[in-house]
């Protein structure tokens, strides 16, 4: 809890400009309230005495910049979050993708990879894994290291297993991992077709064409202008009749995509139709 706001709006702008200049990371089009809260959290956590000290440290210490990205970007994620969403993927999206000779999927802003492993399980169970490739990207390379390992807290497995069943999964979820102390290591067979790479949605270009792009709970941190840019990037990166999947509270309503995309059911999945 923040007793005080050490870093004010103007200071946030100063810091974000410094970071852009010194490191090339552009957070200037992030939603202000959220990033300001995260910056203040970091300021308090690391016990800075003054804004000047915080600013100096950020500009002069690349390792600290590393920590900034790790702490200020939100990395919270879950396996099979919103089970109903995964059910629609299972029942409506994957059967269509299955008709293609090859399936390329992009998890944009994958964080520690829980959703990528969820998708791998869906593909396995639909017998499509052998012809799929899962590209998983994030701007934070520490989370990608974790994603690559496929090791998640064992304490989460009960929840994930419930989510999995609600998503229409019929197997014993524990078949997919090996428990060791407080960790669950997911079967390496699941990560065999995953490609992890850093990619910054703000500044990097389209790098392939996909049949399905998932970007869930990433756009909520972006302001409208940046959202529009990212939507355009996704449109360029999607095959005709490809699918775009967003988080449960995200929408394409403010973008130019609305006329060329058709929404599926009540879930946040859109199909590119033109």
């Amino acid at each position: 809890m923040l007793e005080y706001n050490f870093v004010q709006d103007e200071d946030v702008d100063i810091i974000l400009n410094d970071i852009l200049e010194s490191y090339g990371y552009d957070f200037t089009e992030y939603s202000k309230a959220s990033i300001k809260r995260r910056i203040n959290r970091l300021f308090t956590l690391d016990r800075f005495m003054s804004f000047a000290e915080f600013r100096y440290r950020l500009r002069s210490d690349p390792d600290y910049m590393h920590r900034f990205i790790e702490q200020v970007t939100v990395t919270v994620t879950e396996m099979f979050r919103d089970p109903q969403f995964y059910k629609v993927l299972r029942e409506q999206v994957l059967p269509t993708l299955g008709t293609y000779p090859f399936i390329r999927i992009w998890h944009a802003g994958c964080s520690t990879g829980e959703e990528v492993y969820s998708m791998a399980i869906l593909l396995k169970e639909a017998n499509l894994y052998h012809k799929a490739l899962l590209y998983a990207t994030d701007l934070n390379h520490d989370v990608l290291e974790k994603a690559r390992m496929g090791i998640f807290p064992l304490s989460q497995m009960k929840q994930y297993s419930e989510n999995y069943i609600q998503s229409g999964g019929t197997k014993d979820f524990s078949e997919y991992y090996t428990a060791n102390y407080d960790k669950a290591k997911f079967d390496e067979e699941l990560s065999r077709k995953m490609i992890f790479s850093t990619h910054n949605l703000v500044s990097d270009r389209s790098f392939n064409e996909f049949q399905l792009i998932l970007c869930r709970n990433v756009l909520i941190y972006f302001d409208k202008d940046l959202q529009v840019k990212v939507f355009n990037l996704f449109e360029q990166s999607l095959d005709n009749l490809g699918y775009l999947a967003l988080g449960s509270k995200e929408t394409i309503r403010f973008s130019s995509l609305t006329s060329r995309f058709k929404k599926l059911d009540n879930e946040k999945i859109w199909k590119k139709i033109a």
Binding site: D9, S31, K32, A33, S34, R37, V74, V76, Y221, K249
Partner: peptide, 24 residues
């Protein structure tokens, strides 16, 4: 406020959502 998201108020009096760690 939707469940499972933090709800924040922006300077321009619009709303934003945040899926960061639980607080309290």
């Amino acid at each position: 406020a939707p469940s499972d998201y933090h709800l924040l108020v922006e300077t321009n009096r619009s709303l934003s959502l945040d899926y960061s760690e639980k607080i309290q």
